[in-house]
Design a protein around this nucleic acid. Structure first.
Lengths: 343, 343
DNA sequence: CTCGCAAAAGGTAGCGCTACCATTTTCTGG
DNA sequence: CCAGAAAATGGTAGCGCTACCTTTTGCGAG
């Protein structure tokens, strides 16, 4: 009795090849590039595989070919609606391709991100999608060592690791606040939570717009590192009103906060927009159906996820997009909550 | 010059072993079960690995050991907040373990689910988490053939494939509607969207509660297969009011619809709860901060994800939980929107 | 001082697939 | 009809790791 480890019991490529009457390598080609076979053999291998219920062993394939068909994705939150839209774009795009997605959650920590990047290294992903442009030097080093196409999403900025698809949070918020100014509002508050890099750049947009209109006043600002929520929007408005009771508008760092602000206004019988204008950021679905409908900045989150996958897969296959940085822009969705102030 | 394929250039286990002055198999053991080594060798291998920056090749490991450390997860939606909470639980629990998560989106299609299950087969996952209990016969066959621990989540029911963690949607909705009845409401409408199996079972709970109180009337019901949204809640309330203008309460199949219903009531100047009581399902965060705060049924979504991973990983390691079916129950969160009807 | 046993370490042989090259077959045009 | 090129197919040798078994080492008992 010879020493042997237990076979897995699964059908192997060799068995398919034998049944089809071809060599294993020909059968292998069938699964990777069917056009390379003559029609008759293609047919034979196909039916043999079907008959035996052959399922390729991905681990063996990855080992032999020295590559995988996995795209790693790092996002900072699974809870935030913003990222679920991005994820949907990513998963939708991946379904049309041969690649599968490996997702990990950094929880807004660049150190966690670094750790996860190193974990991904062991998987030798074919491509990588990371959120934002604020990786640690160590993370950047790991990414560069990974030697695969990488897309940074959600933002655009100088010095991409490889490719980028996003928009300028600064400019979007600048446009939002400028709109409020144009509508006649003067004491425009800002509420922000989480204060991750994107929120901070949005805050920068607010600050610059206010300064440009000579309306900037630090008392108009309330921020907190606490994770964002609708309830928090109410709390922050309460804080803001106690610091600056004379505000006539609030620019909210995101839509959750904006909805919380609206609810707080309702609780205080402050009519929107007569007593208080509100503007949000991202244009989540509820903004349009709130009463009154809330103005927001629409961002192309789904498209961002989709494009990232498309760019990365194209690059893997050698067709790098001509332009490595794509700005998807934004769109100001003007609704009743920022209707012009009556004199 | 001998024929040879290009080496990957990565550090291999053999090199670590050589530097540490041990055999490859000893180095291998170090990474899987460090306690099996004598302290001195353990030390030597650790420092050699560190010095060389060794990253294990997971594909080779999976091939040689005939198993992976991947848990496959199938969920029907990435957009729905309900699933993002479940996912958060899943990812949080997986981080404490050696297992990684492979996520796929069925888009509420049991055929897509079947296809994805077959895809997962090729990965030989160590465990599997699937949503709901309504898989096709074919899907069940694939699951049984996969020969790994499987947890069905979100619901409980008879005949688990393996393990289950969830709660009874029927009983939860039954409790919600019974609460409205007890508060004195009589013409209680139901609005439902998506109408996936869980929504249908909730509808069953509504129907049974209404029948038990002799209040059932098919004109009180509006449902649609359209995916759920906040905006849709408003539309469905409008439909419902046109069919049954005398309703005094609405039980909403989920919280998104409930918020849409609240907004529609605000638009129509119907005061809540005086003119219209509202109850939702899931207790998403905004329910408590809405004006008025909205009654809902709290479900333990995060815990569901967590438990599923815990049960599956325990089972992989041979410690099956004593009870294969866990009912996480629900909790009626009574708020102002269902305050008792004044006579 | 030796034996016996457990713990630690090592040797060998694959896991199932594909890269690389060699060979055979088919196609093309003169 | 044949040379030469192109397309199709096959043989061999790993990819980097671990299962399985054997051998060595350590250590206390007799």
């Amino acid at each position: 009795m010879e020493r042997k480890r237990a076979k897995s019991g699964e059908i192997r490529l060799t068995e398919v090849a034998k049944l089809a009457g071809v060599s294993p390598i020909t059968a292998s080609r069938f699964f990777r590039n069917p056009e390379a076979l003559s029609p008759s053999k293609r047919e034979r291998v196909a039916s043999a595989a079907k008959e035996l219920g052959y399922v390729p062993n991905l681990a063996a394939r990855a080992l032999a070919s020295q590559r995988t068909e996995v795209i790693g994705v790092l996002i900072p939150s699974l809870t935030n609606n913003v990222f679920s839209d991005v994820l949907r774009g990513i998963y939708d795009a991946s379904e049309g391709s041969r690649y599968s997605i490996q997702l990990a959650n950094t929880r807004y920590s660049i150190l966690q991100e670094e750790k996860l990047l190193r974990l991904f290294q062991a998987q030798k992903p074919a491509g990588l999608i990371v959120t934002g442009i604020d990786q640690t030097a160590e993370s950047r080093a790991v990414m560069e060592a990974m030697n695969c196409p990488i897309a940074q999403i959600m933002e655009i900025g100088p010095d991409p690791v490889d490719m980028m698809v996003g928009f300028s949070h600064h400019d979007a918020e600048f446009a939002a606040v400028s709109h409020l100014v144009a509508q006649g509002f003067r004491r425009i508050g800002f509420v922000g939570a989480q204060m991750d890099p994107r929120m901070q750049r949005r805050f920068g947009g607010y600050r610059d717009a206010m300064k440009a209109a000579s309306l900037f006043d630090p008392r108009l600002i309330v921020t907190t590192p606490v994770p964002t929520s609708i309830t928090l929007g109410g709390t922050l408005l309460a804080d803001l009103l106690s610091k600056a009771p004379d505000i006539d508008a609030v620019s909210c760092g995101n839509d959750d906060l904006a909805l919380g602000v609206l609810f707080e206004c309702q609780r205080r019988q402050l009519s929107v927009p007569e007593a208080m204008a509100i503007i949000g950021f991202n244009d989540l679905e509820f903004m349009a159906s709130a009463v009154p409908p809330l103005t927001s900045v629409r961002t192309n989150r789904y498209e961002m996820g989709r494009s990232a996958v498309t760019m990365v897969t194209a690059a893997i296959e050698g067709n790098r997009p001509p332009e490595p940085v794509i700005d998807l822009g934004f769109q100001l969705m003007i609704r009743e909550s920022s209707a012009p102030r009556r004199a």
